[in-house]
Nucleic acid binder design. Structure first.
Lengths: 196, 196, 196, 196
DNA sequence: GATGAATGAGCATTCATTCAT
DNA sequence: AATGAATGAATGCTCATTCAT
């Protein structure tokens, strides 16, 4: 007697998640090329062949993770769009970004490496470009308008976040994230005293 | 008539340089794993076997490039140590860093990727750590003292530079390096007005 | 209410037939090795696992088809054994063979390839040998006796039929089967004028 | 000191020949799919990797053999074009074909199987087609004219030769090639008595 | 020093087969 | 009887490295 469709669906979902979780960790920590399908299967606790029931290829696993991460980032930002005050919104987003770096360092790490590795993501280049274009638009929105000052400010904040991510990945916990967050918020989210 | 020793030395040096130049370009643009010794030899215009007269392994080529880059960075900074005024020194170093990013993007790219890819540089981790420790010390020196404020400021500047590097690598020429440089210098290298 | 035994039997028979039909088509057109159990199941409209309820292995499906084809051939010939006149019998068999080639090209194709591919049918070699021995005996019977002339003639006819099969498989409809049939019948089924 | 180019060329030629010889035997006797690159390397007495110095892929080895065989066949036929008398030319070609079947059964076998196996030679289909088109033209030339009778006769001879090949492959030495050859020559290469 | 033929461990991927339900 | 998730041995192919010349 066959399993019911829902049972199959459950099994599938579980295996897929195991693969993605193992892949995220290995790709982020060892690198995409240095991760063999064998080691991936072992880490996921399944057989090598099963991976190909869920993903067409090694690369498609990477892309799936990439897409997940993108969606997660987008959701995070979009969730803050209801905050109307620009300064408060900026602050909220900065804080959420810090939180994400701390709680999901592998995601952030993987995204950063992928962005720099042209070979691996040749055909997903568009994703990358779109993603960063979004980042651009988003940044502009945060700081206020599309004026020159707004653009530069948003690029500064963006570069800061990227740089902090990089350093956090390298230094780990000893890197003083909290202090840096406070400083950034102090600089970029404090109302300017109006000139009298 | 046999060649004089110096001539041999010259030849050696030339081949070595050709290999390193080819490797830098390929590693930075295609990635370390995606670069085969075969393609490296072809790019350098020499035979596959000859590479192993100059380098023990593929990885040792990477390390050699890494060391070169490190030395270059160190030299650049050390060259500014004669500037006594802290603000001017900070400004000079920031400008040199921007210059390096613009003129040698492959070096910077390669270093960044390597810093994030533990797999490739497993045994050179110490290099990385040392390098960044130096960056740390250097930063502190720049801003003045080892006080908390100094540390945070130097980390901010460091993160900014790293982030700008990353974005420049990704966006290329459309990324407004000059404007960002001006803004950074304006923020971090302008004398504070003393309180009355 | 439980099904009656015959109903079960019917179901079994239906699934088995579906598998064999799908296998015949795929094996003949794509080749045995290039046909996966997956694609076979899909074509048959059943699940992969079910196939193993009816057949022990992929190879046993092939053998089953082979046996079917053999039986079909044998039946065809045996059905003509009632024709007493040798020339008419020869003619009838030749015509039936042509008919079979035209109507069941997959069978013929598969048999031919299998006969040439020792790898696939290693253990069924005996089948092959028996089959062709039968062909031999049969041929001899057709033409009359076991005399030398009879043997050579039957081998000639056999080779002709095999060769025509091969060419028909390759050229398809443009191959002039009808004309060849007529010519063969003219040559081999026309009463020799007795020497006066 | 490097080897001289001719030395390299020699080595290359030798290895290439070893691979082709081993491949011909294995492909013909075990079948293309059933022959692994591993076993091929072992039979050739070289390493697996070396094969890919000479051939792009497993399939390209097959194609190389195919081309060789085609050229060999063409050369054989073309060599007889100087014989002006049609009957003698026909006889010469028939005898050469028998000789080829006997002396190079692997070639003939491989060609036959490949002609029947659509999967393997998908992109070389044109070769096959051309080859058989040539066979067609050639046949017509042999028998005399492009008249209907000429075409049918040439197709008959062609089918006979193919069929005999097939049976020879299957039965081996017990198959009476010599007698069949004589019979064919008797039938097709004897001057018709003019009607009185 | 210089060459490129040769090696073989390692990799991604396929697929016949098993099995819990 | 029927399903399809799961397994793992086997395969084609790559590539860093060695070595005879």
């Amino acid at each position: 007697m066959p399993r019911r469709p829902e049972q199959f669906e459950e099994l599938r979902e579980k295996s897929r998640e195991k693969i993605l979780a193992a892949a995220l960790e290995l790709f982020a920590n060892k690198g995409y090329d240095a991760t063999s399908i064998d080691s991936l299967a072992k880490k996921a606790g399944i057989s090598k062949g099963l991976i190909y029931n869920y993903f067409e290829s090694k690369k498609s696993i990477l892309i799936a993770i990439f897409d997940d991460a993108m969606k997660m980032g987008e959701d995070m930002i979009m969730g803050q769009m209801s905050v109307k005050d620009p300064l408060l919104r900026k602050k909220a987003i900065i804080e959420l970004t810090f939180a994400m770096i701390k709680e999901r360092p592998e995601y952030v790490k993987l995204l950063t490496v992928m962005a720099l590795q042209p070979g691996v993501m040749a055909e997903t280049k568009e994703f990358t470009k779109n993603a960063y274009k979004k980042t651009g638009e988003w940044s502009k929105v945060i700081t206020g308008k599309g004026k020159k000052d707004g653009l530069i400010e948003s690029l500064m904040i963006g570069a800061l976040m990227d740089g902090i991510t990089l350093n956090f990945i390298m230094y780990g916990k000893q890197y003083p994230m909290e202090e840096l967050k406070k400083e950034i918020i102090r600089i970029y989210c404090t109302p300017k005293k109006s000139k009298k």
